[in-house]
């Protein structure tokens, strides 16, 4: 084999290589003076650090805990933090969190569009095979389900829809990437968003979050807000008062 790259030495020392590759690399190191010398130098530094690693780990945990305490907003701070967005959107930025819940709805119910004071109603429709149903609290969703969204607004503005899964990973539905512009709804009324979202095979808790604002939405800021909320106290934390949250319990594979 040819000489190893540095990262392979690091992987070997971290037990990050499969057994076959690790054995092959060790064998090469034995036979190659250049690699043996490099590997010995890296190993020496690794050993040096391992002597202090436990102390460093404890310091790290303390520092993270300290930062979390520092970061946890007081009510005043929280309002201050949200203030720019609230004022920028004339206090009408709304967050809708729909629970992707457990039991499929048997039929479409036109009353299931979730409405909020201030301008947004959102209906989520799932398509599974030939069957179509409204996603409301209690609906169970599976990998491969296609979701369509109908947003009804009382004024023009911008809309973003994301999902937050159990591992607190944010997936962008509308727009599909954080660096793309939000969906622009150019007039008051009902808008069926183009395309559909095919659900992946992740399991567990999942939240669907929709945000509408008559002012331009800053998606990076929104992402940080959601991330901070999800990270700081887990999903059981009460969200800011202008959020509407339904708790999530999603699970199981597709049965049909």
């Amino acid at each position: 084999m040819s000489c190893a790259r540095y990262i392979e030495f690091a992987r070997l020392l971290s037990d990050d290589l499969d057994a076959e590759r690790a054995a092959s690399l060790r064998s090469h190191i034995e036979s190659c003076e250049r690699c043996r010398s490099q590997f010995a130098a890296i190993s020496a530094n690794v050993e040096d650090y391992q002597r202090i690693a436990e102390t460093k780990r404890l310091q790290l945990v303390e520092r993270i805990a300290f930062q979390r305490v520092e970061k946890r907003p007081t009510r005043a701070r929280s309002l201050l933090w949200w203030g720019p967005l609230i004022t920028a959107s004339a206090a009408t930025a709304l967050l809708l969190v729909l629970r992707l819940s457990l039991t499929p709805s048997a039929s479409i119910n036109p009353q299931t569009a979730v409405r909020f004071k201030g301008g947004l109603a959102l209906q989520v429709i799932a398509k599974r095979g030939d069957r179509q149903f409204v996603v409301d609290d209690g609906a169970r969703l599976y990998s491969g389900d296609a979701l369509r969204f109908v947003a009804t607004v009382d004024r023009p503005g911008q809309l973003a829809i994301v999902s937050l899964d159990a591992a607190r990973r944010l997936s962008w539905f509308y727009p599909q990437r954080i660096d793309a512009p939000p969906v622009t709804l150019g007039r008051a009324g009902s808008h069926t968003l183009s395309g559909s979202v095919i659900l992946d095979d992740s399991r567990g808790k999942e939240l669907l979050i929709a945000v509408f604002s008559p002012q331009p939405l800053d998606l990076r800021r929104l992402s940080h807000m959601i991330d901070d909320w999800a990270r700081s106290e887990s999903l059981t934390r009460k969200p800011p008062k202008h959020w509407v949250v339904r708790r999530v319990e999603k699970g199981g594979g597709r049965t049909q």
């Binding site: 690091a10 020392l13 971290s14 530094n45 690794v46 690693a53 460093k56 780990r57």
Partner: peptide
């Protein structure tokens, strides 16, 4: 992750 990788990151 710290237990697994801190030492090689230190070398880097």
């Amino acid at each position: 992750l710290h237990r697994s990788y801190a030492a090689v990151l230190y070398d880097k």
